[in-house]
Design a protein around this nucleic acid. Structure first.
Length: 931
RNA sequence: GCUCGGGUGGUGGAAUUGGUAGACACGCAGGACUUAAAAUCCUGUGGCCUUAACAGCUGUACGGGUUCGACUCCCGUCCCGAGUACCA
């Protein structure tokens, strides 16, 4: 009986399903461990071999932690709302619900074949009403909350109303805290507040709510017919679909994530995440500390506020630049310049984001004719308009210091403006002089700067801020790059926003009316008058009277809290019960793609902190440990068609002709050799194809690209499982290299791990393939092989180094084969170790051996003890960075001997001077000196 | 441009964080078994020189440094990947 993975895997997958082997319940006697995968969006293409990479790793961790006695929560679900299903619906009329469900079924089928230990009884789908009911519920909570800067946390909006009733606005208990975007709110007294009508009160409150409606600059994507959040836009085009994106001002639901900017940065320190993800989040939030400075306009009452991180260069200001969208531009432009400015502003505004970005090098701008007064010198400073200044960041205006800022420098050179130097360039600086480039470094001594002269830059910054604040020219202030998150999508396939309008004022629907079910509509396009698809729904009105909101929530809404729902997925009374969240707390091991580092991971942290602030959950961060699995790229194959002919030429000869490279399905090639027969029958157009071969073969060209259907380089896990089995797939994906590294898919090495499983199988069977196991006592040598494997396997797994553990198993099997060991005492523990990686084969052999539980208990408690058996220390030991030392090679040392022979490098030096014959470094960090 | 990774045999990659560089696997070469092939098993495999054998030299992108000892730490240079970008 050879290793028949097909029978074995089917058998045990059925068994696990029937027995509900991986069903998890709260068990307060056991320690919990929550292993979570970022749940997939079920796309029509099905799973490719890259998807399971993370799932396999998390499954190994889950199974391992279960063996160690933890109560493991390991669920799976689907992020089921999203654009592709809806785009498909628009094209075909097929309801997104139908396609989504088909895709989910396909995913489930594929996942089951890999032998994951998910608790499917906890499956969630974000598009189901009993799930999105609670997404809507959280939105309502956000709407009814504001961020109290004094307490540095969110609290119910009633508290703010109470403050207004007591003190009006502003009061010293409320700062003007509306997040990153400054909204002008007129001052009012407590009496004023009470005299305001409902409408006015609600309008004021909208400025403070964490979910709010406002006129805002948005990323409008005409191709998708919707607005997008910043992280959904890449290089000026939409991440999904690649349609151009432009800036547009329109009413827009947003979430005030900026209120949490500081906490989102600060709390990163406590997390066990990679530095690159933490860094990406810090950059995305983009905290920068600086100063706002007021420049008084001449012949106007108004002044221009600028934001700068370099107040020390205040004496180097040569002009002030406003963004084309800046509110003052129109007002301050003098008649002489009005036409030129209008023309410039119109052109600048009409350029799309993409054009602006593509054109960074091109300098453009226009003088307004207006002047401001320098706050310290009183000199006149010209005011310009330039599109290198962004309306959305800081105050939308900058003080230009061309000598010490490269963008100001380029602008000044182009328009021939003054470049006054205020920092002495250090002689050791690698700088070619101010007539060539600006000097941007934050080091050097100040010159030409009045009271700042002679100071070092860092000191000067502080002194400048002091002077500015003292003279009330401005104040120190913190700016964030992070914008509030656009939350409405002009789309059908998403959670309806539980809002209705009365007198043009938004109100939330009553909690008891949740969920607000997504209505059925006849077509999924926007209406002819440009309203979102939901406007097509008949009687889309609250209580039959008030218009509902037409936009739906973005794709990331449902994924921003899903980890909590897994703890209590069927609860109809609460989004999660206190009991469940008290027990499961947050995720212990979270794994997913690095592409979510600025989107999903910020939003889920934001929502978690919000729910924490309201006292609804006891945790402040969603996931303690985060790992990003690398992407598995596809290796695309190409054939080369000779121009104007249905003739194809092999890769090595293609340079002799003019050819077009065409993607060809990698599944009809083997090691770059094209299967000509399959190629001809692949597509109608290739039926009569002819070929020019080299060495009687057609060699395809290849290139590493992202795995995608359109590039014909998708390898399905199903094919691998058919040929080698799920256990081989699991081992191979882990063996491929470090989990976090991206790598192209290749099956070249797969026979190695498959062979390993067959050799392991053979340990339990004799030459005639009969199951046979010996009850003899193990020899010390055999025990050493086992214990070495146990120890290293635990060490490596605790630091999530999956690929190296597999090498260990291979060495172990090789050694046991050499020793012809088929002893129960060795093989039973070995199987336990193997079972997280190759659960099917382990389960099968277990079934023949006997009681798994008792052996697991016997072996795993010991993992916590030192497991080196009488080692003679002929291999590595190092404690506290000190070097272990043996005087003589032949001398066998006890543990104590080694402990006592700790030496410093100085001491070793002495020995070496004493004419040693040889210095040998032996395995591990023991220095061997033979004298 | 900035930030974060990375550069080790023909290939994927190890090296327990400063201690025998190249584990393990693929590939390749040779051998055993076979009429033959497949499968399986054994041997060899960084480079160079040399030997009957032992051994020797060299070697972790490049140049320098610290150290008894460097793939690992420090300085400089060159490449590759990811993220981000007129953020003042």
């Amino acid at each position: 009986m050879e290793y028949n993975f097909r029978d074995i895997e089917g058998k045990w997958q059925n068994y696990w399903r029937e027995q509900q082997s991986y069903r998890t319940e709260i068990d307060t006697k056991k320690q919990k461990y929550f292993v979570l995968d970022m749940f997939p969006y079920p796309s029509g293409a099905g799973l490719h071999v890259g998807h399971p990479l993370g799932y396999i790793a998390s499954d190994i961790v889950s199974r391992y932690k279960r063996l160690k006695g933890f109560n493991v929560l390991h669920p799976m679900g689907y992020d089921a709302f999203g654009l592709p299903a809806e785009q498909y619906a628009i094209q075909t009329g097929q309801h997104p619900k139908v396609t989504t469900e088909q895709n989910i079924n396909r995913y489930c089928e594929q996942l089951d074949k890999i032998g994951f230990s998910f608790d499917w009884s906890r499956e969630i789908r974000t598009c189901e009403p009993n799930y999105y009911k609670w997404t809507q519920w959280i939105f309502i909570k956000l709407f009814h909350s504001w961020y109290n800067p004094k307490l540095d946390k969110a609290e119910p909006i009633e508290n703010l109303i109470h403050l207004f009733e007591m003190n009006g606005y502003p009061a010293d208990t409320i700062e003007n805290f509306t997040g990153n975007i400054e909204i002008e709110i007129q001052q009012f007294s407590a009496a004023d507040w009470k005299s305001f009508g409902e409408k006015k009160q609600q309008e004021i409150l909208l400025n403070f709510r964490l979910a709010y409606l406002s006129e805002a600059w948005v990323n409008w994507c005409a191709g998708l017919g919707t607005v997008l959040a910043n992280d959904e836009v890449k290089d000026g085009v939409s991440e999904r679909g690649g349609f151009p994106v432009e800036r547009k001002r329109m009413p827009q639901w947003s979430l005030r994530i900026t209120a949490y900017a500081d906490r989102l940065i600060k709390d990163l320190d406590e997390l066990d995440w990679t530095d690159s993800i933490k860094e990406a989040q810090r950059n995305w939030i983009g905290k920068s500390e600086g100063t706002s400075i007021r420049f008084q306009l001449k012949q106007h009452a108004e002044s221009v506020d600028v934001f700068t991180t370099r107040p020390d260069t205040i004496f180097g200001v040569s002009f002030v630049t406003l963004a084309p969208e800046h509110a003052l531009v129109n007002q301050i432009t003098t008649d002489d310049y009005r036409d030129a400015v209008n023309e410039y502003v119109t052109i600048a505004k009409n350029r799309t984001e993409r054009e602006r970005q593509a054109d960074v090098k091109r300098i453009s701008g226009q003088f307004t004719g207006a002047y401001v007064t320098h706050p310290f010198t009183g000199k006149d400073i010209p005011v310009w308009v330039g599109d290198y200044v962004l309306a959305g960041y800081g105050t939308g205006a900058v003080m230009a210091v061309p000598a010490h800022d490269s963008r100001d420098y380029a602008f000044a050179k182009y328009f021939d403006l003054a470049i006054p130097q205020v920092i002495e360039i250090p002689s050791d600086a690698n700088h070619s002089g101010l007539d060539k480039e600006s000097y941007d470094e934050k080091s050097g001594k100040l010159i030409n700067s009045d009271f700042l002269n002679g100071l070092d830059v860092k000191v000067a910054i502080r002194k400048a801020i002091d002077a500015i604040e003292k003279n009330i020219f401005g104040k120190g202030r913190v700016n964030y790059r992070l914008r509030d998150a656009a939350f409405g999508r002009q789309r059908y396939w998403g959670e309806p926003i539980p809002i209705y309008y009365k007198d043009g004022i938004p109100y939330t629907i009553d909690e008891s009316d949740l969920p607000l079910i997504l209505p059925e509509i006849d077509k999924f396009q926007p209406t002819d008058d440009g309203n979102p698809p939901l406007a097509r729904a008949t009687n889309w009105k609250y209580k039959g009277e008030y218009e509902y909101e037409y936009t739906t929530m973005p794709g990331w809404a449902g994924s921003s809290w899903y980890f909590l729902r897994y703890m209590d997925p069927h609860n109809e009374k609460e989004f999660v019960s206190k009991e469940a969240v008290e027990y499961w707390k947050n995720v212990d091991f979270y794994i997913g793609g690095a592409e979510h580092s600025t989107g999903h991971l910020l939003y889920v942290r934001f929502w978690t902190k919000f729910l924490f602030d309201l006292g609804l959950i006891p945790i402040n961060e969603p996931a303690q440990k985060l790992i990003n699995q690398g992407m598995i790229q596809g290796v695309s194959a190409f054939v080369y068609r000779i121009a104007g002919d249905n003739k194809y030429i092999s890769f090595g000869l293609k340079d002799q002709y003019e050819t077009t490279a065409l993607h060809v399905d990698v599944n009809i090639t083997t090691n770059h050799v094209l299967d000509l027969y399959k190629f001809r029958s692949w597509r109608e157009e290739y039926k009569d194809a002819t070929f020019i071969l080299e060495n009687d073969q057609y060699i395809c060209g290849s290139e590493v690209e992202k795995m995608s259907k359109s590039k014909w380089n998708v390898v399905s896990p199903d094919d691998i499982i058919d040929e080698y089995g799920a256990d081989t797939l699991r081992l191979y994906e882990m063996f491929l290299g470090p989990l976090e590294q991206s790598k192209p898919w290749s099956t070249l090495g797969i026979s190695g791990v498959h062979n390993f499983l067959r050799r392991a199988w053979r340990l339990f069977h004799d030459k005639e393939s009969n199951f046979t196991i010996s009850n003899e006592k193990a020899t010390p040598e055999e025990l050493k092989v086992l214990h070495r494997t146990i120890k290293k396997m635990e060490e490596d797994l605790e630091r999530f180094s999956f690929n190296t553990t597999i090498s260990l198993f291979m060495i172990c099997v090789n050694d046991l084969t050499d020793l012809k060991c088929n002893k129960r005492e060795i093989l039973e523990p070995f199987l336990i170790l193997l079972s997280p990686y190759a659960p099917h084969i382990a389960e099968e052999l277990w079934n023949k051996l006997g009681n798994k539980e008792s052996i697991t208990k016997a072996i795993f408690p010991k993992l916590n003890e030192t497991y080196l058996v009488e080692d003679n220390f002929d291999y590595p030991i190092s404690i506290n960075g000190k070097v272990r030392f043996k005087m003589n090679l032949s001398l066998k040392l006890s543990k104590e001997d080694v402990e006592q022979s700790v030496m410093t490098s100085e001491e070793i030096k002495k020995h070496i001077q004493g004419s040693p014959k040889k210095i040998i470094v032996v395995p591990g960090r023991i220095v061997n000196v033979v004298i």
